[in-house]
Simulated assay, not measured.
Amino acid sequence: MKNLKKQRRIQVIAVAAVALVVATVLIGYAMRDGINYFRSPSQVAEAPPDPSEVFRIGGLVEEGSLLRGQGETVRFAVTDGGATVQVAYTGVLPDLFEENQGMVGTGRYVNGVFEASEILAKHDETYMPKEVMDALKAQGVYQEPET
């Protein structure tokens, strides 16, 4: 009788371990397309990624590089001070997007050009939405940022 309980316990532990491994593999497989690695322009210039790899690139929009082309395609260069990568984006750019401002783009690096599918404009750490600032002022909590 004791052997049967011991054997049953070992079977339950083995089944639980196999289920855990299978669940981990399935989660990893499902997330493989959802994980986008971040790279700087210097990293892209040093080791260009495979054209099928989707990743994020971030840096400053280089001054004088913003070209609005035919249709909705916009071309510009993004730099991190060490290297510059040409970017092509078809779509509507965010309101805060401009030269000498930070940006993050998601896309693929094909034939020396980063073909972006999404562009996010970054702003500095002192930015606060107007609605939040008004609410804090109404509560008497808001403090002007030090410059």
Rank of each mutant, 00 (worst) to 15 (best):
D95Q: 15
E115R: 15
S65I: 07
G102E: 07
V92I: 12
Q139I: 00
N100E: 13
E125I: 05
V87N: 04
P51C: 05
V141E: 10
A135Q: 12
T73W: 08
L136G: 01
A45N: 03
L96K: 14
P94H: 07
S117Q: 13
F55G: 04
I57H: 06
T106Y: 11
E131T: 14
S65A: 06
E118D: 14
P94T: 10
G112T: 11
T90C: 01
V104I: 05
R108M: 07
A83R: 14
P129F: 09
A88I: 08
G64T: 08
F55L: 08
D95H: 11
Q143E: 13
S117I: 09
V113Q: 06
M128D: 10
A83S: 14
E131N: 15
G59C: 08
A88L: 04
L136T: 02
G102L: 13
V87G: 02
K122N: 06
Q86F: 06
G105D: 01
P49V: 10
G59P: 00
S40V: 07
R75D: 05
D134E: 12
Y127H: 11
Q139W: 01
I119K: 03
D95R: 08
T126G: 01
S65N: 08
R68V: 03
G140H: 04
Q86V: 05
L96N: 04
D50I: 01
F76K: 03
T73V: 10
V44N: 00
R56E: 07
L60N: 08
F76E: 01
Y109G: 06
A138M: 15
S42W: 13
E118Q: 15
M128Y: 03
G140L: 02
E62N: 12
E46K: 15
V141N: 09
L120F: 10
V61S: 01
T90I: 02
D95W: 06
V78I: 14
Y89V: 11
E118K: 15
I119T: 04
D124Y: 03
A45P: 00
P49N: 09
P48D: 04
Q101V: 10
E144F: 15
A116Q: 10
Q70C: 06
L67W: 10
P48I: 02
S42K: 12
A116M: 12
D124S: 06
V74L: 06
S65H: 11
L67G: 11
E125S: 13
V78G: 01
G59K: 01
V141K: 07
E63M: 08
F55T: 04
Q43F: 05
G71T: 02
